[in-house]
């Protein structure tokens, strides 16, 4: 149902005739964060819409919290979607966007890579990641 917003944007019109078959396919894949284990059914791919794009493929869903309204001539925008995660540009692990799991710094880096390569990252990036991890652990400990 959302595939038309994905990709270059202009190609979608041409594929109109094939929709019959497209609807039969389930475009959703299971996304699992390689660090915290978060699991969601998401779409995966390049997300490029009227007001922005992402540098690399992301795991995303249509925003589940607002109704999907069809307004004539309205073009989809970033806010219609929710990006849950991406791929670590170093180790290619799927990670969610939680600060304890990954950081976006020119590209997405998973927390493991950031810590491993901490000498090569700016101090600020490493510190932020460590801090987020500590917080996540603390709240996990609290709830148990």
């Amino acid at each position: 149902m959302m595939s038309e917003e994905v990709g270059e944007g202009s190609k979608e019109a041409e594929t109109g005739e094939e929709t019959e078959d497209v609807t039969q396919l389930n475009p959703f894949i299971q996304f699992e964060c390689g660090i915290c284990g978060m699991k969601e059914n998401t779409l995966h791919g390049n997300l490029q819409v009227s007001d922005g794009f992402f540098n690399c493929p992301v795991f995303f869903v249509r925003d589940p919290f607002i109704p999907y309204t069809r307004v004539r001539a309205r073009k989809p925008c970033l806010a219609d979607f929710l990006v849950l995660g991406g791929t670590c540009s170093m180790c290619e692990r799927s990670v969610c966007i939680d600060k304890a799991c990954s950081v976006y710094f020119g590209a997405r880096f998973c927390a493991i890579c950031v810590i491993r390569e901490r000498r090569r990252f700016p101090e600020k990036v490493v510190e932020a990641t460590l801090k987020a991890q500590a917080q996540a652990e603390a709240s996990a400990a609290k709830s148990n």
């Binding site: 922005g52 794009f53 992402f54 710094f105 020119g106 997405r108």
Partner: peptide
């Protein structure tokens, strides 16, 4: 700006 994942043309 490097810390923001949403990009604009």
């Amino acid at each position: 700006s490097y810390f923001v994942m949403s990009q604009r043309e």
